[in-house]
Design a binder for these strands. Sequence first.
DNA 1: AATGAATGAGTATTCATTCAT
DNA 2: AATGAATGAATACTCATTCAT
Lengths: 192, 192, 192, 192
Amino acid sequence: MARPKNEGKRNAILAAAIRAFAEKGLAAPTSDISKAAGVAEGTLFTYFPTKTDLVNGVYRDIKAELAGAVFSSYPRKKSVRERLRHVWDRYVDWGAGHPEAHRVLKEIELWGGLTVESRTSDSASIAELGALARSFHEQHLVRKGLSDEYIGAVVNALEEMTISLMIADPVHAERHRTLGFEVLWSGIATRI
Amino acid sequence: MARPKNEGKRNAILAAAIRAFAEKGLAAPTSDISKAAGVAEGTLFTYFPTKTDLVNGVYRDIKAELAGAVFSSYPRKKSVRERLRHVWDRYVDWGAGHPEAHRVLKEIELWGGLTVESRTSDSASIAELGALARSFHEQHLVRKGLSDEYIGAVVNALEEMTISLMIADPVHAERHRTLGFEVLWSGIATRI
Amino acid sequence: MARPKNEGKRNAILAAAIRAFAEKGLAAPTSDISKAAGVAEGTLFTYFPTKTDLVNGVYRDIKAELAGAVFSSYPRKKSVRERLRHVWDRYVDWGAGHPEAHRVLKEIELWGGLTVESRTSDSASIAELGALARSFHEQHLVRKGLSDEYIGAVVNALEEMTISLMIADPVHAERHRTLGFEVLWSGIATRI
Amino acid sequence: MARPKNEGKRNAILAAAIRAFAEKGLAAPTSDISKAAGVAEGTLFTYFPTKTDLVNGVYRDIKAELAGAVFSSYPRKKSVRERLRHVWDRYVDWGAGHPEAHRVLKEIELWGGLTVESRTSDSASIAELGALARSFHEQHLVRKGLSDEYIGAVVNALEEMTISLMIADPVHAERHRTLGFEVLWSGIATRI
DNA sequence: AATGAATGAGTATTCATTCAT
DNA sequence: AATGAATGAATACTCATTCAT
């Protein structure tokens, strides 16, 4: 339970794992990862006893970084639209700016081995997004019939789409980001 | 003059492969597949010389079935909205009704080994969707700034989202389907 | 037991086998051979029930051809030296002229599966060479202490060496052939 | 700091490989070899990453041992005849005394996968034999028309022949060895 | 007799994990 | 804690041979 001392090694392993998973998928050999991290094959297993643990570790690492990117200087007091726009912009920029981490995150979510702790590790973000959804409803901004989960799903679907377009066509990245938000808002909200 | 190649066996292999890929991912062993198909390990390779060929075969098989589901009784003469609604309903119903095939299709699309022939195997559908997109534009139904590809991406993103929701909550499947289309239409189309 | 009718097919298989064995060794797949012979995979096995049978068949085929090359117009009445020279020249020319068949013959001799019938199939040649060896001894032409088998071994060793040199350096093939025989004769025969 | 690579294991693998190759040819399964060596199947591959590497390793191992046997107490200052006789005796004794290693050596030489480094690994022996050939010529001991390579080929051909005879008829091994050298010398040299 | 589909045992190599140093 | 050698189960594909047509 006592986390091994050398935080640097742990981080090197995580970084190497992200790169390896991005390149070869989750099937990337642990030996590739340890080599890229500059540690011995066995050392990886003193930090992550199992490959499953390593994948979960990568997931939580990326999620934490992502939460930082999305919720730093979050305008909690501003309007719903502005808050949603903040989340949208930050998430979408992070995804387009870290394509490897983003791809790995999606891959891990499809994969079957995430623990519940990993899934709920980022409770702060979850709470914040919940609050945002609630405000949305309370202010009757939401098209009739749409639940909180529904809205979350739409936001997420259009975010992923937007990230893909931004990566594929980086010259028009900003336009994609803005257009995406407009499609989202007019799809979801009752009025502008 | 010899035993002719058995279409039934080919289909059994494809069906077994879809099930195995859905359960264990594309890494599912060919031996599992041949066993589930009721053929010898070697037989799989007389139908698909390579695992890559098998995956491509699965992809084309699913795509063909999907095209049949989506474009049978397609209302080519009806309005753009009705045509889009037809495609939406059929696709989303197929995905929710064939969750394994749907999941495998998505997995294969992420995978790196699709041949160009496989990718373009379903040219009829591609053409039909192109025609639909063109009508959309010509009738000035489209929100300013959205290209054909953009619309395609939005449609696809919301379809996938809707399928997920229908599978997760089958009781409200119809509502999800209808709501999804409304979100799509108000997100994409010019007012009224 | 009744040899199948079509002699042409049998020969095509033998010829294809020699080529395949020369190129890839005795491990060459029977399917390669049947394809090269222009027959179905199964057909090969109606002519040679087993791969072992095929290899034995190839051996006997080559041996028969070789015997024809060596003993046609054999000067049975001439001197020992002339007869030996005839055998030497014919064998060595055949080997240099048919490098594939020659290589395959050597490979099969190293291989463990030759039957006794194959080994003794060419009894006529064996008898003729035995007669030659006997004359050699009776005329006291042989260096003291050399048995018939010994002489046979020396002849063979130097023939193989000469064939290799002729193939490697075809420009001086004739010189190699002559020199080889001189080395042989002075190594084996009593001083004149 | 970890378990060091075990020279004993490497040698056990090489020895087992020689035995296996002698018995079943180079097609002998690596699993047979690892089992005979008393190591796990995977362990073989930490010492020889590839079967090709293993075969090359066996070749170099045998060559090194052979060089030791042939050139230990080599009479570099003695006459050409004595030096040649030394090489002849040592080589032929080694071959007759290590029939498995000898057979494997010949098999590997026929095989197509030797690296250049393997082929030239025993440069000391090659140099020594070159020096011997040169002395031979400089002292005009050689029958007219015979190049160094030619002599080398004759020596080799008669050595192989002699080894075969010694193995087949071990009771007269010494006689075969002596006779062989006499045949060689009178075949090659100008005078006794 | 001819065909080629069907069979399944066989094989080199990989890789997560353990363990001696 | 760190190392990397050792382990052995797992896997795609081959190929001689059989057999339905």
